[in-house]
């Protein structure tokens, strides 16, 4: 049987999510044995032409060129999985969606006219059909392996759409919101990180984005009660998944 092929494409991002693939130190060689790495510039000079069986896309769409390029990538991909907050929600750079991009340019560059950029940073799914979205800033490498393994064997990935709280409790991590009064995004945040922040005495800051149907309004109300101010509530919903509709909408309520 022909080995299935894997491609990795990058758009506006920090490279961290695709690095997660190389961070699978124990599995990398087995992975390369199970799937043909056909296009992965970060790791290899050898580039095979598409179509690809599985394409991982990192990064968000921020330029007109990329908005075209992603269509080409889609056309070359049998299954397209977006990895990470940039690809699934526009990433931290989606903060520009709430601001004046021309003004942003002028802050960073003396000659903004050299730079081509769109006024927004958007998810891949807002441009092309996406088969699966893997969340996280960055993604969790175990989840990435689960996605690839599931793809190889025709399985539905065991990645649950539930709040961080569920995993906090399963991991016996004491709730930092209830026991310490920390304003935590966990109840509205998609689990998957391994409950890192509460484990480290820190409130969740939502790097895996909103859980489906998150009740962000009720959570925001609670954040106020815990002493957060309006600006703080706006900012906490407006970080690495600022472009995710649930967080974006909630943040706008506190402008």
């Amino acid at each position: 049987m022909r080995k299935k092929t894997l491609a990795v494409f990058k758009f506006a991002s920090c490279d961290g999510c695709q690095l997660s693939l190389l961070d699978c130190e124990d599995e990398l060689l087995a992975l390369a044995g199970a799937i043909e790495i056909a296009h992965f510039p970060e790791a290899s000079r050898a580039v095979m032409d598409g179509p690809y069986d599985l394409t991982l896309v990192e990064g968000s769409i921020t330029t007109a060129h990329d908005a075209e390029r992603i269509k080409h990538v889609r056309a070359q991909s049998r299954t397209l999985v977006t990895i990470g907050a940039c690809a699934t929600a526009g990433g931290i750079q989606a903060l520009r969606n709430f601001a004046d991009t021309a003004e942003y340019l002028s802050v960073v560059y003396a000659r903004p006219d050299y730079i081509e950029t769109l006024a927004s940073s958007t998810s891949i799914a807002s441009h092309v059909t996406v088969d699966f979205e893997l969340r996280g800033c960055p993604i969790d490498k175990r989840q990435l392996l689960e996605v690839i393994t599931s793809f190889l064997h025709g399985k539905r990935p065991s990645i649950t759409d539930e709040s961080l709280c569920a995993d906090c409790k399963r991991a016996d991590v004491v709730c930092v919101m209830v026991s310490k009064g920390m304003p935590c995004l966990g109840p509205a945040t998609h689990t998957g990180c391994g409950v890192l922040c509460p484990r480290h005495d820190r409130a969740c800051y939502g790097c895996f984005g909103p859980v489906t149907a998150a009740n962000t309004g009720a959570l925001a109300e609670r954040l106020f009660q815990l002493g957060m101010r309006k600006d703080g509530v706006k900012r906490v919903f407006r970080s690495f998944n600022a472009g995710a509709p649930a967080f974006a909408d909630e943040s706008r309520k506190h402008e």
Partner: peptide, 13 residues
Amino acid sequence: AERCLACTNCTMV
């Protein structure tokens, strides 16, 4: 439901 976060905490504890 307007207040409930559906976060699962009540069931987990």
